[in-house]
């Protein structure tokens, strides 16, 4: 313990008003520090002097004065008990009220989270997984097969159908495609989502090897 800390406690210790644990710590310090011991002695001396002098000055009423005072004091009746407006509430009513309000707020938040519908997902999460390219050879590309089925959930843009028809028409007699890259764009009729597929020559060659 430092002397500055000890000096904060010495005044209380002089009158025996320090908590026992602190008093023990202070006593340990006082055994080692002569300066703090001297300060404690000064405090005790002054307290003794004040108590000694004050203890000798006591006043009292004379009997005549006292009788007169009692007669004057008890002239009226004591007032009936009147509780202040808030006295009917328990002493910690404000604490109980705050706790109830806090619990109500938390309950409202939980209920709202349970009852309200989930937030709409972003568009990107609605996309179906990208289909893997088929390992089978492409079916025969004819104008009829390129036409969209009526029950498909998407449509093929008209210009793309025209390109596909042109590509099929330009196909040579040996059955090999006349172009290196074939692209296909699918547009969802419900959401307007566009999916772009691209097939290249290498992919077909490998398929054919199977």
């Amino acid at each position: 313990m430092t002397c500055s800390r000890a000096r904060k406690w010495i005044a209380l210790h002089a009158g025996g008003d320090l908590h026992s644990r602190r008093a023990r710590r202070l006593e340990t310090h006082l055994r080692k520090c002569a300066g703090c011991r001297a300060e404690l002695e000064e405090h005790k001396s002054i307290l003794d002097a004040v108590r000694g002098i004050a203890g000798r000055e006591t006043l009292d009423w004379s009997e005549t004065e006292w009788k007169s005072l009692m007669a004057q004091t008890t002239r009226k009746r004591p007032e009936a008990v009147r509780l202040p407006p808030l006295a009917a509430f328990p002493k910690r009513a404000w604490a109980y009220g705050s706790a109830v309000l806090l619990l109500a707020g938390i309950s409202a938040l939980i209920l709202r989270a349970l009852i309200s519908p989930p937030a709409p997902l972003p568009v990107s999460e609605k996309m179906p997984p990208t289909p893997l390219p088929s390992s089978r050879p492409l079916p025969g590309w004819t104008a009829a097969s390129a036409a969209p089925a009526r029950d498909l959930p998407f449509r093929i843009p008209s210009e793309q159908k025209a390109i596909a028809r042109t590509a099929m028409a330009a196909r040579p007699a040996d059955g090999k495609p006349a172009q290196d890259v074939l692209s296909l764009t699918l547009v969802s009729q419900e959401t307007g989502l566009r999916v772009h597929w691209t097939f290249n020559r290498n992919f077909e060659w490998e398929e054919k090897r199977r």
């Binding site: 009158g15 008003d17 002054i46």
Partner: peptide, 9 residues
């Protein structure tokens, strides 16, 4: 109390 005793001293 601590302040009062300190001041008186």
């Amino acid at each position: 109390l601590s302040k009062a005793r300190g001041k008186i001293r």
